[in-house]
Design a binder for these strands. Structure first.
Length: 468
RNA sequence: GUCCCCAUCGUCUAACGGUUAGGACAUCGCCCUUUCACGGCGGUAAUCGGGGUUCGAAUCCCCGUGGGGACACCA
């Protein structure tokens, strides 16, 4: 049997972190088994579905590199098929018209709540044979009254629910449009899904869906219900903390490789391993290893993960991810060292891509002010002489490379009988404008001879002026 | 309220019924050091509670407690 999975979001918002993880798990399982993966947009609620959300989902999937073999399939384009199935269920006696008004239903639920019962439709239209004048009926599925439904869940184990807990759900609204539980079932059957991997907030729907599948004579797929992701504080994700779209993570400077790795480890594990290449994810991922409990999203660990990838990913890959940020933060790199070299110099200290761009400006642009605190500490009277000596040694170099630069600085220290601690920091501030940069040899080499010397001269003048 | 799911350091998690309960993030201390980082070494820190079953329980069972989810002509 060839595995087939799908990711089926409804376009009522962006692709959030929980959805992204479900998509990742579905994608991984299909890919690792040589099966296929489909993307289906559940947009039957026309009131709430919006195009912007569809775009956001597609963009998110692409950024994460989760490609699909089928789709996007839009449910709104399959209404004819749903109508056909609904008719079939009617013809076979598995469904019936219900003429109850919303008010009537609400009253019924009120009463059940008052009796400390679970609110559910009591089946009062089950036996009705005559239509009610002037009322467009909904269509309800005739759920079995007795017996258990068993969900064979790959994550949670067997879940048994008695049919008495279920009611006759609406499968078609009074305007004839199908509802979620019907469309999911029809699509999962038609698309040949073998494994339904989704959030565990769907567990309650599963027995109803299984009953419909059985009524349709279809094979019931395997299920894997993945727990929810909680916010940093352990509470349900909300807009205020973490319930942001995955594209926000791009905007904030995260690498998709890191986000994926963070997500796969959130609720899944393979021994003590933390870092997984895409190949390793495919090799080791098993639905059975998904942890059954909800897990809290931890930004600190994501930050760490992001840095791990920043340090180890091939430069070309980082360069690719950086393009958007360079544009977004308006950094023109055409006049300066090769971006790849700056990445090599900065990758161990940049917190993320946004931080990288922000802390790498001096390689490409001149600056006209110094870090205030560092200026106060380093640019004291007399330092200009030290800088001048350094300048002269550097200016005299035949070759401009990290080795020669380092030896020039070392020679300056010896000549002035000063430690590196006296010569280095002012030099760094003069050339970078900030007290933070890669090693001086690397920094000066990348900034280049002309710029380095100019900046030192400028700093000398600046010190002379401010300490006069 | 009813039904369902879940429960190991602050967080993510590991542990054929037998381990000094392991790792990672964070945190604290030390080392490295021209800055910022990286890195190295070490520390603090957990089996929700109560009953069983068993020679032996984090692990199996029951009951609590806590958290989450679901109970729509939403998905």
């Amino acid at each position: 049997m060839t595995v087939k999975t799908r990711f089926a979001p409804s376009p009522t918002g962006y692709l959030h972190i929980g959805g992204a993880r479900t998509a990742l798990y579905s994608w991984l399982y299909a890919r690792k088994t040589g099966g296929s993966f489909a993307l289906r947009i559940e947009d039957t609620d026309r009131e709430r579905s919006i195009q912007a959300s569809v775009d956001a989902i597609l963009e998110g999937m692409e950024w994460l590199g989760l490609d699909y073999d089928e789709g996007p399939v839009f449910q709104t384009q399959r209404f004819d098929r749903y109508a056909e199935v609904i008719q079939q269920l009617m013809d076979e006696g598995h469904a019936y018209h219900c003429y109850c008004s919303r008010e009537e239903l609400e009253e019924m639920r009120e009463q059940q709540r008052a009796n400390k019962e679970k609110p559910r439709y009591d089946g009062r239209c089950r036996a009705r044979t005559e239509p009610v004048e002037g009322v467009e009926p909904v269509i309800r599925f005739r759920n079995p009254l007795e017996g258990d439904v068993v969900i064979k869940d790959l994550v949670k184990g067997d879940i048994v629910i008695n049919n008495r807990e279920l009611d006759d759900l609406i499968i078609a609204r009074s305007d004839g449009t199908p509802t979620y539980n019907l469309t999911v079932v029809v699509d999962d059957i038609d698309m040949g899904m073998t494994h339904v991997i989704r959030g565990d907030d769907h567990i309650n729907n599963t027995p109803r869906q299984i009953n419909i599948m059985k009524a349709l004579g279809a094979t019931v797929p395997a299920f894997a219900h993945v727990p929810m992701i909680l916010g940093d504080d352990g509470k349900r994700l909300s807009k205020r903390h973490g319930a942001v779209g995955v594209m926000q993570y791009r905007d904030d400077g995260y690498l998709p490789e890191a986000v994926l790795n963070y997500l796969i480890r959130l609720g899944w594990s393979h021994g003590d391993q933390e870092i997984f290449s895409r190949e390793e994810m495919l090799e080791f991922f098993e639905l059975e290893d998904i942890h059954g409990a909800a897990s809290a999203f931890n930004t600190e660990k994501l930050n760490w993960m992001n840095q791990q990838y920043f340090k180890s990913l091939p430069v070309e890959v980082i360069e690719g991810h950086l393009q958007w940020h360079l544009e977004n933060q308006k950094l023109d790199i055409s006049n300066g060292p090769a971006l790849a070299d700056v990445i090599e110099g900065q990758r161990e200290r940049a917190k993320n891509l946004v931080d990288f761009v922000e802390t790498s400006r001096y390689f490409f642009e001149d600056f006209d002010s110094y870090d205030a605190k560092a200026q106060k500490k380093q640019f004291k009277a007399g330092v200009d002489a030290t800088l001048q000596a350094t300048h002269d040694r550097l200016a005299a170099l035949d070759d401009w490379n990290p080795e020669s630069i380092q030896s020039a600085i070392n020679a300056t220290c010896e000549a002035l009988e000063l430690g590196m601690g006296k010569v280095g920091p002012p030099l760094r501030l003069a050339v970078a404008g900030t007290p933070m940069s890669p090693g001086l040899d690397v920094t000066l080499n990348l900034v280049g001879r002309e710029r380095t010397l100019q900046r030192i001269e400028k700093a000398i003048a600046f010190i002379a002026e401010t300490t006069a």
